[in-house]
């Protein structure tokens, strides 16, 4: 998985490059929006990490120009400001996620992985989270190469959680995903299926309960 870092600050860029490389990504780095456009025009990337405060052309303008040019490359925006305006602007302009400086490197890596995974799941039928792999077409799951025995409802919940791995998925959403067969389901049903899934998944991936909100599927740290 190849990432382009667009960051003018040497210290930050260097740390990002080393950190993401250490997390298993292939990383290239440029220092300006103009260089980024040149690099993206000639090379293939899976994701761009873009700083908002670039010299001359800023990061938001770069994202807008990319989207206007029909480029759907996932973009993670980095900013030193924490205002709502920037955040809204960034997401409105077509950025996919947003991180405020200072950040922790594992968090950057996790966000990058999640963004790439989500983009790929739109085009490919396979979803990989650690040793867990889901085939969205045949609706089957494998754990460490072994076919996982899950019911249809368990599968629906697992799929929902995996597509948004690392993010909290609301219980209502999970309920809607399984309610298709039986309208009488209560939120408790979700809890039952989640606990069954936990038993089947073991240590490979963790399904965390977020009390009052829902669940989050976490992949193990690499």
């Amino acid at each position: 998985m190849r990432i382009l870092i667009v960051e003018d600050d040497e210290l930050v860029a260097d740390a990002l490059k080393r950190g993401l490389a250490g997390a298993g990504f292939a990383v290239d780095r440029v220092g300006s929006a103009e260089q980024a456009e040149a690099a993206l025009a000639t090379e293939e990337f899976d994701l761009a990490v873009v700083d908002i405060g670039l010299p001359k052309l800023d990061g938001l303008t770069l994202v807008r120009r990319l989207r206007r040019g029909g480029n759907s490359l996932p973009v993670l925006i980095l900013t030193a400001r924490d205002g709502l305006a920037d955040r809204v602007d960034a997401l409105d302009l077509g950025a996919d996620d947003y991180l405020t400086k200072p950040f922790e490197l594992p968090e950057v890596a996790a966000r990058c992985r999640a963004l790439i995974r989500r983009t790929r799941s739109a085009t490919s039928a396979e979803l990989r989270i650690g040793t867990l792999s889901l085939d969205l077409k045949s609706r089957t799951a494998e754990l460490g190469g072994q076919l996982l025995d899950v019911t249809r409802r368990e599968w629906s919940i697992l799929e929902c959680l995996a597509l948004d791995a690392g993010r909290v998925v609301r219980k209502e959403k999970l309920l809607r995903a399984i309610a298709g067969w039986d309208e009488e389901l209560t939120p408790n049903a979700v809890e039952v299926y989640v606990s069954r899934l936990r038993a089947k998944l073991g240590e490979a991936v963790a399904i965390r309960t977020v009390r009052g909100l829902g669940y989050r599927l976490d992949e193990p740290a690499p």
Binding site: D9, E10, L11, V12, D14, A15, L16, R18, G19, G22, G53, A80, R81, T100, K101, P102, F103, E104, L105
Partner: peptide, 14 residues
């Protein structure tokens, strides 16, 4: 303030 802090923090992490 934040940009150098981010750089230093990430470098120290590494």
């Amino acid at each position: 303030l934040r940009t150098p802090l981010a750089g230093m923090q990430a470098q120290l992490e590494l």
